[in-house]
Simulated scan of single mutants.
Amino acid sequence: MLTDPLFYAVAIPAVILLGMAKGGFAGIGVVAVPLMALAVSPVMAASITLPILLVQDVVSVWAFRKSWDKGLLLLMLPAAAVGVFLGWALAAFVKEAAVELAVGAISVVFALQRLWAERAVSAAEQVAAAPGRAWLGALCGAAAGFTSQIAHAGGPPFQIYVLPRRLPRDAFIGTSAIFFATVNWMKVPAYVALGAFTPKVLATAGVLLPLAIASTWAGVWVVRRVPAEGFYRVIYVLLVLVGGKLVLDGARGLIA
Results as ranks from 00 to 15, higher is better:
217 W>K: 11
115 L>Q: 12
239 L>G: 06
102 A>M: 12
54 L>E: 00
187 K>R: 12
124 A>I: 10
81 A>G: 14
128 A>N: 12
58 V>C: 10
76 M>W: 11
181 A>H: 02
34 P>H: 06
155 G>D: 02
121 V>R: 12
98 A>T: 11
163 L>W: 06
111 A>F: 03
57 D>S: 10
204 T>C: 04
136 L>H: 10
96 E>P: 05
21 A>P: 01
13 P>L: 15
64 F>V: 08
219 G>K: 01
88 W>T: 15
132 G>M: 10
201 V>N: 07
72 L>D: 10
224 R>Q: 12
232 Y>E: 06
59 V>Q: 01
109 V>N: 08
188 V>K: 03
203 A>L: 14
90 L>I: 00
2 L>T: 11
55 V>P: 02
226 V>K: 10
182 T>C: 13
33 V>S: 03
96 E>C: 03
116 W>G: 09
63 A>T: 00
175 T>P: 08
176 S>A: 14
162 V>F: 09
131 P>E: 11
67 S>P: 05
249 D>F: 02
53 L>T: 07
142 A>C: 14
199 P>F: 05
186 M>Y: 13
55 V>W: 03
96 E>H: 08
124 A>H: 13
193 A>Q: 14
88 W>V: 13
256 A>T: 12
241 L>Y: 08
249 D>Q: 12
209 L>E: 06
60 S>Q: 00
150 I>E: 04
42 P>F: 06
151 A>R: 05
236 Y>H: 04
71 G>D: 14
44 M>F: 10
219 G>R: 04
160 I>N: 04
124 A>E: 15
140 C>M: 15
189 P>G: 10
21 A>C: 05
163 L>C: 06
3 T>M: 13
141 G>N: 10
149 Q>E: 09
199 P>T: 03
109 V>P: 06
142 A>M: 14
106 I>A: 15
142 A>P: 02
39 A>V: 04
189 P>V: 04
